[in-house]
């Protein structure tokens, strides 16, 4: 289903303060029905605080927020009955089995026995855990627990699913399985809100995203828009010895639109990476290594904040 025009989550000057500390500083955003909307930013940028306010588990300090047309301050139970939440740290019930986790969660939503049982079985199939239905939760792998948490968040057939760093801590194979399931979920018409500090996750899953840094939103758009707006098409990454680096003094400035100096390498933002590499060779700069790649959201973030996403 293509993203609709209906706004499902609407925030204006949304603010969260803990004492003197401002975790979320007057952010504006709109999430539309059917889209996968991302919050990209490093740890501590305010993503989780924003998620918690949307999920009605953290009171808003200031500003305006509506979720599915309702006010979290006065209609939290009704909002919560229509959303699904996948928290950053799994909070499955370790004293119940895999299937019981879903059945009990259904009870919390006041979903009755027979419907709950049918839904639990469907969801276990959906996240490929049908064979583990009777097992205890504790011995499951990180990826399986994550998938079970995702299944649990869907037990009330939510219109909106909020996922806080859905693949943090998972190995690459488990991540891909989670991504694939989330993609299927989106295909079925669910609206997703995803926070992540992985640019590849944001690029894979999000139709639109905001980049957060230090409690503020610093940019907004589709992954492709953002890359076009804030980066070049390609990036030439080179490594040089410290001695060489000391003699560069801007010798490469005219090769690239922009040069970013990181502690371990130089990033040259260029339209054509191979051509730029030739130009570097022409200037007889001795390289330890060189790599041409497509620009990513990581480059967007670096451009906007001067820092890398994962420090």
């Amino acid at each position: 289903m293509p993203p609709g025009d209906e706004v499902l989550v609407h925030a204006r000057a949304l603010t969260k303060r803990f004492g003197d500390f401002t975790a979320v500083d007057a952010v504006d955003f709109d999430v539309r029905t059917g889209e996968a909307f991302g919050f990209l930013g490093p740890n501590g940028a305010g993503k989780t605080s924003t998620m918690r306010m949307i999920a009605c588990s953290s009171p808003i300090s200031d500003g305006e927020l509506s979720v599915i047309g309702m006010d979290p301050r006065s209609q939290a139970p009704r909002i919560k009955s229509r959303i699904g939440v996948v928290p950053q740290i799994d909070n499955l019930d370790a004293e119940l089995t895999v299937r019981e986790n879903l059945l009990m969660y259904a009870r919390y939503f006041d979903i009755a026995g027979e419907i709950a049982g049918r839904r639990a079985d469907e969801l276990l199939d959906f996240v490929q855990l049908g064979e583990r239905a009777g097992d205890q939760v504790e011995p499951l792998s990180g990826g399986m627990k994550r998938r079970l948490t995702i299944a649990r968040s869907l037990i009330n057939d939510p219109e909106l699913v909020i996922l806080d760093e859905p693949t943090t801590g998972l190995d690459p194979q488990a991540r891909h399985l989670v991504w694939e399931r989330l993609y299927r979920l989106k295909q079925r018409g669910a609206t997703l809100i995803i926070t992540t500090h992985y640019m590849d996750e944001a690029e894979q899953l999000c139709d639109r995203l905001v980049v957060m840094d230090k409690a503020k939103i610093v940019a907004e758009g589709s992954p492709r828009d953002l890359i076009q707006r804030y980066s070049t098409r390609e990036v030439l990454e080179i490594r040089v010895s410290d001695a060489v680096r000391a003699t560069l003094n801007g010798r490469l400035e005219d090769v690239a639109e922009r040069v970013e100096e990181l502690p371990d390498r130089l990033l040259l933002y260029v339209g054509d990476g191979e051509q730029a590499l030739e130009a570097v060779h022409d200037r007889q700069v001795p390289l330890e290594s060189a790599l041409v790649r497509r620009a990513t959201l990581e480059d967007v973030f670096l451009r906007l904040t001067g820092r890398t996403l994962i420090e």
């Binding site: 939290a76 009704r78 928290p87 740290i89 909070n91 370790a94 969660y105 919390y108 939503f109």
Partner: peptide
């Protein structure tokens, strides 16, 4: 430790 209440509070329970 087990954060059961966090999970419960994500449902209509208060």
């Amino acid at each position: 430790w087990r954060r059961n209440y966090e999970a419960m509070l994500a449902t209509p329970l208060g």
